[in-house]
Design a binder for these strands. Structure first.
Lengths: 243, 243
DNA sequence: CGCCAGGTTGATTTCGCTCAAGCAATGTGG
DNA sequence: CCACATTGCTTGAGCGAAATCAACCTGGCG
């Protein structure tokens, strides 16, 4: 006991801790009640699959709490981590809207609570309440801008810079405490997954971590990272910008 | 004369050659008439900017005919080509929906006809006709899937494979004629822009082109390319897949 | 004519991958 | 409880692909 305290059952959508961050928050009380009745809730443990790439996409998953990673199978058959999802995210909405089957897999990385909403329900809500569609549109647009930003960065930046950037992003979400200017955080990912996130091999990840330690940028101990100089991370990203 | 025949003035939206490919095609006649009255049309010559990265985004541009490239300024200040737009595309909708200013620049690569629609008009249409929003949502989702596909490919595939892929994509759009199995097309891009599209340096582009010639995959003469074996291009992309 | 931008080519270097070994933590079956 | 696989991580050695640096060539264009 004690290891499951965050996975308490979500009673209903109204008390969902992530409701404010979801697209559904524009719905009326009556519409929300519709979802609430139609949804099914499940608890996932680390490693559990929420859905698999290639599965038919029969609805969306509403990510209430926990931690989830999105994976894609590459040409060699490896399920590489492509991004993280956050509570409030609606998993699988792209596949649902664009086509038939899931383009990627979703896997719980920590104990998570996730609800499922059938496509028919989503469809009827989209038809009934135009603001829901606009809300999803805004979301898709934001995701799109992020994706294009990432294309540019992967093409332009060095491995060091990309790793520094990743650390900064993770810091925003997972920094535990800050003291004398340094930041401590627990990486939610294995080295392999860290590597995949910035498109490199695990060996190169190890070496890059070692470089960062040697350069005094951060200290790594397992998944605990102490970033000694946040500014150094920023310096890594910007190759002597002049603007 | 003869070099401008494709840039005839677009009289109105109803006779727009790209209407079927736009999101606006779901609008009623009355709504389309609204756009038609509110829009302004402009002709652009190669090199002309449609909008600049950083500009406030005061509406969308409706790409009727011609050819347009989307550029992004990288960390070094170079305006690198990130993708091509096609007639029927609505330029700048991401920036309009997501935030304030343009995240990239649009530039005419060939003589082009492009209309401008003010954000207020777009907004009122989105509010009035829910299917328009859903249409844009589908579009954004498709773009998003493309972008993520590209992230994966850039990380996974070799330069040869990425160039082969680019040639195949350009072939779909710009293949002029096919004869004895070979395909001839006119590349719409400079070497520099080709290089930027697959995230490499111009020098590497030159060498890759030379490799393709030496390997008998294609013959390059200026911007004219004769792809001798289309199958060879496909072979380049799939590194002995077994599935 | 000289200039300049775009393109090609060559020489060299750098970065990240591959291959390979070793190590610590964890699990498993006898 | 020990012998042993297994898995994730690190480290080293060598290689190869692409970047970088540099020269040169070409075709406009003032």
């Amino acid at each position: 006991m004690g290891s499951r305290r965050k996975t308490g059952v979500v009673k209903n959508c109204f008390s969902c801790p992530a409701l404010d961050r979801t697209e559904w928050c524009v719905l009326s009380q009556a519409e929300l009640r519709n979802i609430d009745k139609a949804k099914s809730t499940r608890e996932y443990l680390p490693g559990d699959a929420i859905y698999h790439q290639g599965d038919p996409c029969s609805g969306v998953h509403c990510f209430a709490s926990g931690m989830v990673g999105i994976r894609k199978v590459d040409a060699d058959g490896n399920a590489i981590l492509v991004r993280l999802a956050y509570p409030g995210d609606t998993l699988g909405y792209r596949s649902l809207l664009a086509g038939e089957e899931h383009r990627d897999s979703a896997e719980a990385l920590k104990p998570s609570t996730i609800c499922f909403i059938d496509r028919a329900v989503v469809r009827s809500l989209l038809d009934a309440n135009p603001s829901l569609g606009l809300r999803f549109l805004t979301r898709a647009t934001k995701d799109l801008i992020d994706a294009e930003e990432r294309i540019l960065q992967n093409a332009t930046l060095s491995v060091r810079a990309r790793f520094a950037h990743l650390l900064l992003v993770l810091k925003e979400r997972y920094a535990t405490n800050t003291e004398d200017g340094s930041v401590v955080l627990e990486l939610p990912l294995s080295r392999q997954d860290l590597a995949a996130m910035i498109g490199i091999r695990p060996e190169t990840m190890s070496r890059t971590i070692r470089q960062f330690e040697d350069d005094g940028i951060a200290r790594f101990s397992g998944r605990i990272v102490q970033v000694t100089h946040v500014d150094s991370l920023l310096d890594e990203i910007e190759p002597e910008n002049y603007v």
